[in-house]
Amino acid sequence: MVKRRSFVAGVFLAAAVAFPSLAAERSIVVASTTSTENSGLFGSILPVFEAASGIRVKVVAVGTGQAIKLAKNGDADVLFVHHRPSEEIFVAEGYGVKRFEVMYNDFVLVGPKSDPAGVRGMTDAPAALARIAAAKATFASRGDDSGTHKKELGLWQAAKVDAVAASGQWYRETGSGMGATLNTAAGLGAYALADRGTWISFANKGDLEIMVEGDKRMFNPYGAILVNPAKHKHVKAAEGQAFIDWLVSDAGQKAIADYQLGGLQLFFPNAKKAGS
């Protein structure tokens, strides 16, 4: 019996030492998208901010839809995503304080080298999509209510194609993140819409290459919003706003511009100057 008791005590002791300092650290949780995390942007700019402010930034990288849900539930201090209409609704409903423009990148339409739909080099994204639909060429969609997914649905609408009706045939909804969807597209030899950041840093391109780029309608702006402390009083408003302020400051904007992968700039800062 003595042995058993000391064993139980040991387990509790182990529990006590396993996580000695869960508290007492200045940190914020940022709900963001897979595109910013997977592209390596956060890995590059967060150490700069953390060194300057002493505030640790914990990034939960999920789809834009889930990120907004997390922020609405008060499970994050800052929302940093890329679907402006949803972001504006988020602020309008009182969940967020104010939306700050931070940066943009753009989307690219990628597809297999063989280009069965013949869209290579086109600059009109909806027209290219219409051609893919006409050719019934396989298209891999995120299908996960993310910012990229919403952007893609907008482009289909502009192309006047009801792609979702073909779901399961040539239109494949992966229901997963950007990387997983690109893995699927590479495996199926399918077309896919991807944000340029994830695309450049994506390592398993296989047969895929960029087919269509440069259309203004594939512009992909990122906004940062402080979760409203009036809705969730535990939100770390000071720290969260400090992070947003830094993102739009000269130092933050420079850090974003400085991040390169393979000699290519992935994100382009576009914060409005204070007062403008």
């Binding site: 949780v29 897979t34 914990k58 990034v59 990288a61 997963s176 990387g179 893995n183 398993n204």
Partner: peptide
Amino acid sequence: GGNIAHSTRVMTTAIALETSKGNL
């Protein structure tokens, strides 16, 4: 956990992350 770097990232979520980055 949220797969937060240096905070809640464990083996399996790291594997999922690297898979999504295409680093198979």
